[in-house]
């Protein structure tokens, strides 16, 4: 099982704070997000538009990074911290 977390504008559009996705065998962040799209009404192009960042266990990673059972993925819209 992998937990996928959503924040800010993505959380509002997806309508969820997080979703658990069962995995079996070699899987990447991209694979998991494709599964999220299949299991929700969210288009995969929305989850992977090119301008988002992705974190795996609280570290920025690319979409092709492998994931393991128990991992946490976060889908991060463009950051806007600071003043």
């Amino acid at each position: 099982m992998v937990t996928v977390r959503f924040f800010a504008s993505i959380k509002e559009k997806v309508g969820l704070e997080s979703i658990d996705i069962p995995i079996n065998g070699p899987t990447s962040i991209r694979d998991v997000l494709n599964r999220v799209a299949n299991e929700t009404s969210v288009d995969k192009a929305f989850l992977m538009p090119g301008g988002f960042l992705y974190a795996l266990n609280q570290r920025m990673e690319s979409l092709d990074t492998p994931v393991n059972d128990g991992d946490e993925i976060a889908v991060l819209p463009p950051l806007s911290g600071g003043f």
């Binding site: 924040f7 504008s9 960042l53 974190a55 950051l79 806007s80 911290g81 600071g82």
Partner: peptide, 10 residues
């Protein structure tokens, strides 16, 4: 900070 820290402004 503006490019690395996962914080969002509404």
């Amino acid at each position: 900070l503006k490019t690395r820290i996962p914080i969002w402004k509404e």
